[in-house]
Design a protein around this nucleic acid. Structure first.
Lengths: 254, 254
DNA sequence: TCGAGAAATCCCAACTGATGAGAATTGTCT
DNA sequence: AGACAATTCTCATCAGTTGGGATTTCTCGA
């Protein structure tokens, strides 16, 4: 546990225990994992339970509670990124069979926040909310390539063991991607698919998300790929502009 | 603000400000609404921001952050209620055009946690996470009718102004529903639709969720309705049993 | 129903972390 | 550059938090 101080952070740290691999916890397991005293842990659990973030299981233990579901509903309704990107996702999948995704870059994680699927086959499984790999794939590359140099190098160094090439090769590839304005990856995350992704940039040019189309590699042609690259590049740029203009509008309106 | 004590609860209370009507807040608005001092509020916001629950907007203000999305993904993956009910939702919508929903009863709220849609027309809009009305509709009735008498009467009294009938009529209707095992409602929530719902009961017979099919009222026939009632009643009962058996299995295995 | 064990809560002294008034700094926009 | 808004800092005070250990409540099987 890396430097958790204050009861607010200690309470929220409990939620970090819940993962795909460990969706349920008994209080004893939590006590051992977190190192809190029993009375304190129960007090924290009571708080999270009453707020709806945790739910007691019938026999013993706890799982995530309905409040996270409610909050996610609110989040998807009000997210400017989704509002700016939704029409593009729909248009993209109307023009090209595949899965179009909008993926947020959030605290060193890649998180799909919206997607559309027009693929005749099941391509991959990164539904809303599931973090994506950081060292592989077009989306990762579309984010890493636009990070400030220092951040980029730190991240690549940190995940060096996970990349399929040496560091210098990875960095060179990211430079190419940036020059190109779009990233393409074949079968890096899921065999048999090809991903094309471009970043959504904030006002300060930092990447905040990526727009991506994942298609079946077997049916991809060079002409098709070129068209998709252009479309993705243009759409991501439009979303970037939209997010900026949207904020300007709000300032004018008060 | 009803009796919030302790910094854990105070921090989580910030999240309660975010609603469909008010998805974004400036720190000043929050300060006024919650009555916290400025430094304290900023400290709390820092905690929530760093944990991913809130996100600062580019100009000013805050909205819900990606952590709620991540947690909801985990929740949908591990919810025993969804695991028990999913196949029924699919079968229901395969047999009958409409929207089949699984709705959790959570701290006096009705929250859709899973649904399937086979309706040729758009019927209603209660996606995952959006609370449903408490005084109208088949789902509400399927929960209220199975509540312990004291809870039921308290709730009906509390929401009396929202019911379309006097209290005694409502209570009588709930008694009928319970005798019947299933609730039917025409156009109470959304005009032109009919909802059929039955409760999922915990081991202690308390309602914890409802299974519901919402269909187009114009195409509903008495024979069809009777068939749907029977199916919903049986499926809800099967889900109830499943949730209990599932827990027994766990105890045996572990 | 009883008993054993697990889960959860209570008590309370010690102390540490949280609080807020007010000042200072940083960020944003014209 | 200047004005204003947003955010952070300082620090004395004290309120809330903590955890050891005891107690109570719950669950399940015989």
């Amino acid at each position: 546990m890396s430097s958790i101080s204050g009861s607010g952070e200690r309470i929220l740290a409990i939620l970090d225990l819940f993962t795909e691999a460990t969706p349920e916890w008994t209080s004893e397991e939590m006590r051992v994992a977190l190192g809190y005293s029993r009375p304190t842990l129960y007090r924290y659990l009571k708080t999270l339970k009453e707020a709806g973030f945790l739910m007691a299981l019938p026999q013993s233990g706890y799982m995530l509670g309905p409040r996270v579901t409610e909050l996610d509903f609110l989040s998807r309704r009000s997210d400017p990124l989704i509002a700016a990107g939704r029409a593009h996702l729909v248009a993209l999948t109307a023009a090209h069979p595949g899965v179009a995704s909008l993926v947020r870059w959030y605290g060193r994680k890649l998180l799909c926040v919206a997607s559309e699927d027009s693929s005749p086959v099941t391509l991959s499984s990164y539904p809303r909310g599931r973090p994506m790999p950081l060292a592989r794939g077009a989306i990762s590359r579309a984010i890493l390539a636009w990070l400030p140099k220092r951040d980029q190098e730190a991240l690549v160094a940190e995940h060096e063991a996970e990349f399929a090439a040496p560091r210098e090769t990875v960095l060179a590839m990211l430079r190419d991607t940036r020059r190109d304005g779009v990233a393409v990856a074949w079968g890096e995350v899921t065999p048999g698919v090809v991903g094309v992704a471009a970043p959504v940039l904030a006002a300060d040019r930092a990447p905040i998300a990526a727009l991506c189309l994942t298609s079946d590699a077997a049916t991809m042609t060079p002409a098709r790929l070129a068209a998709i690259r252009d479309t993705i590049r243009g759409m991501a740029s439009a979303i970037s502009t939209d997010l900026r203009v949207d904020n300007t509008d709000q300032a004018v309106n008060g």
